[in-house]
Amino acid sequence: MNTLAASVTSTGEAVQFWVLGTIAVIGALCTILMKRAVHSALCLAGTMIILAVFYLANGAYFLGVVQIVVYTGAIMMLFLFVVMLVGVTAADSLKETLKGQRWLAAACGLGFGILLIAGIGNASLKNFNGLGAANSAHGGNVEGLAALIFTKYVFAFEITGALLITAAVGAMVLTHRERTERAKTQRELSEQRVREGKHLPPLPAPGVYARHNAVDIAGLLPDGTPSELTVNKTLRDRGQIRDVSTEALDDLKALEQRSEERLGRDKDARDRDGQEAKR
C-alpha cells in the first residue's frame, strides 16, 4: 500500500501511467471530437475512470473511490439522462459557424498548453515526499481526510453543504413548471374527444412489420404512407421518426429483382435445354 504513494514510482506505476495516460488523452480527445453527445459522455466516463485509477495510484484512496461513485456513477449518469432527454440520436455538425473561432481556439489552446507545460517544466518539482507518513498519521487515508475536513476545513465543509442544498433547490426551481390549470380527468378527455369528433378510439400503435415495431417507427396506412399519429408526441417533436415506408418498398423491389433474376436464369436454362433438345 505504501509503495503506491511512495516518493519514487515503481516500474509498474510507470507502465500503468503510460498506458492509461494515453487512453485518458484519447478519451478526452474523443470527448470533444465525437459528433453525438452520448458518445462524448461515454468517452468522458472512461477518462474519469482512468483518473480514478490515477488517484488511487497517488495514494488518494478515498478520492479514487469518490471519483468513481460520484463522477462516473452520479454525474455522468445525470449527463446521460439529459442527453437522452434532449435526444440521443441528434448528431452535431462539427462544421464551425463562427468565423475564425476554430483558429483562435486552436491558437489559444496551443499557447495555453505550451505555457502550462513550460511552467511546470520550469518549476523545481524534483522532491516528492510521498504520502506514506500523512496517510498513516491517523491510521489511514480516509481517517486522515476526515481529521482535516472536520477540523481545519470544517467551515468550508459546512459551506459546501449549504451550496449543495442550494444547488438542489435551484435545480428544482429551474426545471419546475407551475401548473396554470387543473389537469383534465379521463372522463373530460374522452368527452373532449367525442366532441371534436376525431380519433374516438385510441391512437393507432406504431410499427407495421414485426421487425419494425419500435416506438420511433410510424405505422403504415392502407395505402402504404406512414401515419405520424402512431408515434409518440415527444419523438415527433424531436423529429426522431424513422420512416420505413420506403425501406419496405425497397425491400420489395429488391425481392422482386432477385426473384426475377432467378426466374430469368431458369428461363435461359430452359431455352438452352430446348435448343439442345432440338438438335
Binding site: A105, C108, G109, G111, F112, L115, L116, G119
Partner: peptide
C-alpha cells in the same frame, strides 16, 4: 482563455 494565457505568460 486568451487573456488567461497572456496572464500566465
Amino acid at each position: 482563455f486568451g487573456g488567461t494565457a497572456i496572464l500566465i505568460a
